Amino acid sequence: MSAPTLAFAAPAKVDGEGLARHVAAVRKLIAAGVAEQRDRGRPVVEAAPEHETATVDEHQRLIFAQAWRNSLVRARHTSYAGWRLDDQALQEDPTDFRLPGGDLPLLDDHQHPAMLRGWLDRLAAGTGKKRHVIGWGGVGSGKSTALIALGNAAVRAGIMTRYVRHGDYLRWTRPDGAPPGMTALQVREFHDRAGLLILDELCGEMDGQATEFARRETADLIDARSASGLPTAFGTNVTFDHVAAVLGSRFASRIGQNALVLEFQAPDRRAPVRWGRS
């Protein structure tokens, strides 16, 4: 018997009673992340200023935007922050982001913007049937850019969204491995409770079977999210069989169930200078 198809619940709203506590907690995390990046001499994306007269919905959008920015800062991906899914996203946020040649940072057709937009619209409406998105393809094929553009649009749609690399998540959940100002438990909670989690570079640089710790932490994260009906967008360079070999067939089956799978076939967009003989 096949498993029942689950529909997404519409994103929850933050009510006025818990707003102040939520704002304070998120601002504390953001401040810790910004301080850490400054200490390391890295570029910092400043938090937006508070607006004392803002409505609950406006505060919620501010909180979500700050949490999203902070996750990109921690991932050292702030240069991706301007990417948009499509013209609709540019109309929703007319800020004039430009790439180094003057082009607008819009996804091209090889990055599946229409499929990602449709999936996100159904998620925001609470009518989605596909629990996860899996973007897979070669190195430099545009997966991370597309997933971050999806995250940008999700935040504007009122969905608490976070980005994290698989390897970073595993490192942060080790004893004494969490970023300054956080505990391993807080790392787990921030990611297993996000309305949309973008888990990039799944199984990155894992050629053999993962350690028991890596298997358990990864499975626990996705099991917790699935139990709450929360979607996850994965980026990976490897196939279903490779994920099964590294993290176990049960895990691969769980994320592949009711997933929207998008293949990225473009050549390496970084256009690296190559050397030596192939």
Rank of each mutant, 00 (worst) to 15 (best):
K28S: 12
V164H: 03
C203R: 01
G248T: 04
G167M: 00
L62D: 14
L170H: 07
V23L: 10
R61A: 14
W83H: 15
A154E: 00
M206H: 14
G248D: 06
Q257A: 15
R76D: 15
A252D: 10
G195P: 15
A9Q: 06
T183V: 07
D241P: 13
D176G: 05
P105D: 00
T55Q: 07
D109I: 04
L116Q: 02
L202R: 09
Q209M: 11
L72C: 12
G235T: 06
H22Q: 06
Q186N: 04
D109K: 08
E36V: 00
F234M: 05
R122D: 12
A3G: 07
T145H: 02
A194R: 03
L106T: 01
R188K: 11
V187T: 10
A266E: 13
R69D: 15
Q37N: 09
S253M: 05
L202A: 12
A184V: 01
S2R: 06
A125D: 11
R225P: 15
G229Q: 07
H166I: 00
V261S: 14
V133E: 02
G118A: 01
T95V: 08
W68V: 01
F251C: 11
S144L: 01
H242G: 11
P267H: 05
S2N: 10
V133S: 06
D176I: 00
V133N: 03
F97E: 05
T161P: 13
N152S: 11
I63A: 13
Y80A: 09
G128N: 09
I148W: 03
G208P: 04
A259C: 15
L262Q: 12
G195T: 03
S278N: 13
R193F: 08
G276Q: 05
R42Y: 11
D39N: 10
A224L: 10
R193K: 10
Q88E: 13
I30E: 05
V133K: 01
S141T: 02
A210K: 06
M1K: 05
G256N: 14
L85F: 14
L107I: 01
R277F: 12
D109T: 09
E212F: 07
V56H: 11
V261F: 10
G18S: 06
Q66D: 14
D109P: 08
P11W: 00
R216I: 03
E263N: 12
D176T: 00
V23T: 08
T236W: 12
